[in-house]
């Protein structure tokens, strides 16, 4: 099985306080931010690796995992990390975040999918910076492929995937015929969430994503990493979403101490006006 995994790098959410907005308010200042892969995309990569191996012998890949990211040269580090964890090949579409929106990424991915002809496109359900949650769905629409979003489990079948989605009150199970687009939720990296046809149903994975070992990190230098221009993928680079301004959330005000319950109720009623 050949799988295309779309990866985005995001500002490290643990250092979100470092996000700065210049006085002009027309953009987010990304200088000095620490970057890491979008966690949901890392889960998608882990799912792709599980789908292309026998869980007992995870070093041998059955099929191919290709990772793609949209970003400047520095984002190649994100791709290297993915190659070191087991992906076979990487593609970087050279562009910066401010020139992109979900619809444009989906258009470009469509062109890439037509070139690469994967059986499955896997990605996180959303990126934790913009939280747009659009690319997977738009891509499936553009390709006219079956789609399963927010996958919590995936089981490979002959020519199809059985995808479990956690919904209110239970689990909805979809069978999507290949080729298909699947976006994943966090439970996809639980020990018994993903099974390829090769992996025994008794196999239990370690919880979470796998870690790149040093020999694989060194070897990842030799894996192909191609650069593609956005213009080569889509002639239409227009944006459907435009941002009109940014402002930081208001600083948290100091709290107050209330005398007693009556005082609290009065203040909630008169000052906070929530009662």
């Amino acid at each position: 099985m050949k799988i295309l995994v779309a990866l985005k790098r995001v500002a490290d959410p643990d250092n979100a306080n470092k996000v700065k907005i210049p006085p002009s308010g027309d953009r987010i200042d990304t200088a000095g931010l620490e970057w890491k892969p979008n966690p949901f995309d890392e889960y998608a990569l882990e799912a792709a690796l599980r789908l292309t191996e026998d869980g007992k012998a995870p070093k041998a890949r059955a099929g191919e995992v290709v990772v793609v990211t949209f970003g400047p040269k520095e984002t190649e580090q994100t791709l290297r990390a993915a190659l070191a964890t087991g992906a076979d090949r990487a593609i970087r579409v050279d562009v910066t975040d401010d020139k992109l929106d979900g619809a444009l990424v989906a258009r470009a991915l469509k062109a890439l999918v037509e070139r690469e002809k994967p059986d499955v496109v896997l990605m996180g359900k959303q990126a934790v910076d913009g939280d747009s949650n659009q690319v997977g769905q738009s891509l499936a629409e553009l390709l006219d492929w079956p789609m399963a979003t927010f996958a919590a489990t995936i089981q490979e079948e002959q020519g199809a995937l059985l995808v479990g989605r956690e919904v209110d009150g239970g689990v909805a199970v979809l069978r999507v015929r290949l080729p298909a687009v699947v976006t994943v939720d966090l439970r996809i990296v639980a020990p018994t969430s993903v099974y390829s046809l090769k992996t025994a149903r008794t196999h239990k994975y370690n919880d979470g994503v796998r870690f790149a070992a040093l020999p694989a990190i060194m070897a990842s230098k030799k894996k192909p990493l191609a650069e593609v221009k956005l213009a080569d993928l889509t002639a239409d680079s227009g944006l459907k979403v435009q941002y009109h301004g940014f402002e930081p959330p208001p600083a948290r005000k100091a709290g107050i101490k209330v005398k007693d319950v009556a005082d609290l109720v009065a203040r909630l009623k008169n000052e906070a006006k929530v009662l």
Partner: peptide
């Protein structure tokens, strides 16, 4: 710079491995 990149990828794995 090559080695820095290798080491920072490794340290990322090390931190996650210890954390888990």
């Amino acid at each position: 710079s090559d080695e820095r990149e290798n080491v920072s990828l490794l340290l990322d794995s090390v931190r996650r491995f210890f954390g888990a």
